[in-house]
Structures are given as structure tokens and as C-alpha cells.
Design a protein around this nucleic acid. Structure first.
Lengths: 215, 215
DNA sequence: ATTGACTTTTTGTGATCACAAATTCAAGAA
DNA sequence: TTCTTGAATTTGTGATCACAAAAAGTCAAT
């Protein structure tokens, strides 16, 4: 149990907004106004300001000077740039994580693969996406390289909004889980290169699927 | 000419602090206090607060809740984590940049390699380091991938302080420029893989040199 | 001298006000 | 209607005050 007592108000707001982004509760292009959020979170404008500025600094939100913060609308080109960086970092993190996984974490990852499969068969997009984020980030968190992990989490925060939105009105096909099954096999075989390859394929497949849906 | 009119006070302070970090004017471990900086930059506490929080969000500064922000002191382990990510990203950026370089930029890069060589022969550590940062970042800026560039600049901001500090009382040997000469050769030959390899070697050499000087 | 508790000062965080720039809205002209 | 124009409102940014937590300083006791 990590003692996130949430000391500061601005940290509470920050984490709330962060989760909202990952959960796709914020539409791309939506404008986030300080006073509105302050009212919504029952806070003063000050912590909200700080939280927004932090998210902007992390690239999760965009803001022009003197203008409202808004959740980024990714054009195809930007999305592919994001993807190319993820392809460089995430397989690496996965490979480094594999030998460091505890039995508990392995079991949790296996359960997530299974949960994603059942979510797919039930056309439960939200469930699949939550499982997908859990699976990847939980795996990467074991990589033992906080710097790398920090970058990856920042990238997920940037892809989050489009990622969830685009799947909502998209027919889900079972092939989406193939790469995860391959990753799970590599995981059980303690085969780091195969795991890296599986993660790479997962990102590339899913990336291509989304890329041609963007403006 | 890019119209950096520096609209906001907080942006001015941010860029000033950022440059101070890259130039090694801030010692690792040094505490940055809001009111002191406000006085130094003839600003109110508000823009300074925002600038500091942004730098913290980017990883360039550290802060525990309710405590002063301070320039990070990197232990060897953290430095190597930073290095391993840089090794994944910077050669990639260099390779993508090569075919996009204009003749002007090529010439500027060549001049920088030469300037670094002469700085080395004169034991001018500061000049060498400035040239080094200029060379790398100018090269990467041509990569055409803003996402990638942003991450790399963030990483340089994090290594900046130790980088400059450690070289100041260190004898400079000419071998430090070997990788840059190799990069310059690859650049003239339009050989992207060779350029990527040269950048990789540069980081690795310089990284190893610094790693065993850290606590 | 060194450690410990206590007091004083410093410092980050939150709240509120002021203001200029940006946005929205409405009325009028084509 | 569609576009323009100008007033009215909203909204980000900066300034200042208040307060609790942290740091620094003080001094007595061992």
C-alpha cells in the first residue's frame, strides 16, 4: 500500500484529471476552464490552475498563451509520431520487465489477458480498453527504470483520449487480442525478445487500425 | 524568425531557468526558493511558481510536497537509466533527421564539430559543452517528429546539470570528439545507419566516462 | 562539544481580487 | 439567411494576503 495521502489539493485534482483522460471521459477538442473545474471539484481556482499547467507541461493537454486549455485533437501525422516513439520504448520496457516480474504480477497479467478476451466476445469496448491499459502499464511498471516508465505513462496520457473514443463506435473483432495472447505465451516461456516482439506487434496493429480513422 | 514575443511572464522565467539549467549555472542539490527567484527576476511570486512547477512536471527539477524544489542530484543508477533511454531515442532522431537537413544546417553542424575540436585543444570545457549541446540538439531538431524531439530535450534538461559540472574539473582529452567526427563523416556520406551508430557511440562513451564519477 | 526541546523565521500552498485579452452574443447590413 | 461589427461576458494571468508546515536558530542539559 503506497501512502498516497494526497497531501495537496492540486495533486488530488491532477490525479482526477489524469484518470479522466485515461478513461476517455474528456473529448478531444474539449476546453477545460479553470473556474468550471474548480466548481466541479469543489476547489479554489488555484489548485486547478496548477494541475492544468502540470498536465500541459506533460503534453497531456495543450494551451496557447492567454487561451483556454484543451484536450489535444490528434491528426493522423501526430498520432503516428506518437506511435513511432512508443514502438521504440514500450517493447524495450517489456523486455526489461520480464525477468523482474513476481509470480503475483504474472498471475495478474494472465488474468487481464483473459478478461480482455471475454470483454471482446461481449463487445464491451470500455472493459477491453481498461484491461488493455492495465495490462500494458502493469507490465511496464516492473521494468525497474523509472525514467523510462515516466515517459511511457506520458505517452499513454497523450494517446488516451483518441484511443478510447475511436473504439466506442467500432465493431470489436477477436483478432485484437492475438498480440496479447502472444505476449502471454512469451511471458510464460521467459522469452524476453519474443515478448518485445509481441508488444511491438500489438502497438503496430492497433496503431494501424486507428491511424486511418483520424483526420 | 519565430515570434517568441514571450507573451507571459511565467514563460520568460521558465526559459531563463531552463537555460540556466542547460548552462550548468545551477548546482545539483541547490534549492530554488520562490521568493528569491522572484526578486532575482524582478517578478512576482506567481509566475515563478508556475515556471518551477512546469520544470518539475518535465522532470528537470524535483520537489517533495510542501518542500522546496531542488536541482536533482543524480545517483549513478539514475544516470544510467537516463542514458539507456537516450540511447534508444537519440540515434533514431539523428537517423530521421539526416535526409531532412538543409545545406545551411549541414554547414552549421560541420562548423560546430570544428569548434568543439578547437575548444578541446584549448581545454575550454564550457565551450566544448556548449558546442556539444548545440550540435546534438540542432541535429535532432531536424528530425521532423516534435513528439520525439520534446522527449529528447526533456532528457537533456535532466542530464544538463551533472553533465556540465563533472566536466569542469576534468582533464579534457581529444578522444572526446572522435564520435562527432564519425558523425560528421556519416553526415557527409548521407549514411543514416552510420550516423545513428556514431551518435550511439558518442552517448555511450561520454556516458561511461561520467558514470564512474557519480556517487 | 553534542544532543535535545523549544522558539522564531522562512517557505510552499491556497484564497481572493484586479485587469486585459479572448470569447460569446446580438443587432444591423448585405 | 449570412456575414460583419460592436458591446457584454467570460477567462487566463498576475498580484497580494493568510496560514500551516518545514527549516533554521537558540539555548540549556548531559
Amino acid at each position: 500500500m503506497h501512502d498516497d495521502s494526497e497531501a495537496n489539493r492540486q495533486l488530488q485534482v491532477y490525479h482526477a484529471l489524469r484518470q479522466a483522460l485515461l478513461d476517455g471521459e474528456l473529448q478531444p477538442g474539449q476546453r477545460l476552464k479553470i473556474r468550471d473545474l474548480a466548481e466541479h471539484y469543489a476547489a479554489s481556482t488555484m489548485p486547478v490552475r496548477a494541475a492544468l499547467q502540470r498536465l500541459v507541461a506533460e503534453g497531456a493537454l495543450r494551451s496557447a498563451p492567454q487561451r483556454s486549455v484543451q484536450v489535444p485533437v490528434l491528426r493522423r501525422e501526430e498520432y503516428q509520431q506518437l506511435l513511432s516513439v512508443r514502438l521504440a520504448l514500450e517493447p524495450m520496457a517489456a523486455a526489461q520487465a520480464l525477468p523482474r516480474l513476481t509470480p503475483d504480477e504474472r498471475a495478474a497479467l494472465g488474468a487481464l489477458v483473459q478478461r480482455m478476451a471475454s470483454a471482446l466476445s461481449q463487445q464491451d469496448a470500455a472493459g477491453y480498453l481498461r484491461g488493455n491499459a492495465d495490462f500494458h502499464l502493469r507490465l511496464y511498471r516492473a521494468c525497474g527504470n523509472p525514467v523510462l516508465l515516466r515517459l511511457i505513462e506520458g505517452l499513454w496520457l497523450q494517446v488516451g483520449p483518441v484511443f478510447t473514443q475511436l473504439f466506442n463506435d467500432q465493431r470489436l473483432h477477436a483478432g485484437l487480442n492475438a498480440a496479447h495472447e502472444a505476449a502471454w505465451k512469451a511471458l510464460q516461456a521467459d522469452d524476453s525478445p519474443a515478448l518485445a516482439r509481441a508488444i511491438h506487434d500489438d502497438l503496430a496493429d492497433c496503431g494501424e487500425l486507428l491511424a486511418h480513422l483520424l483526420p
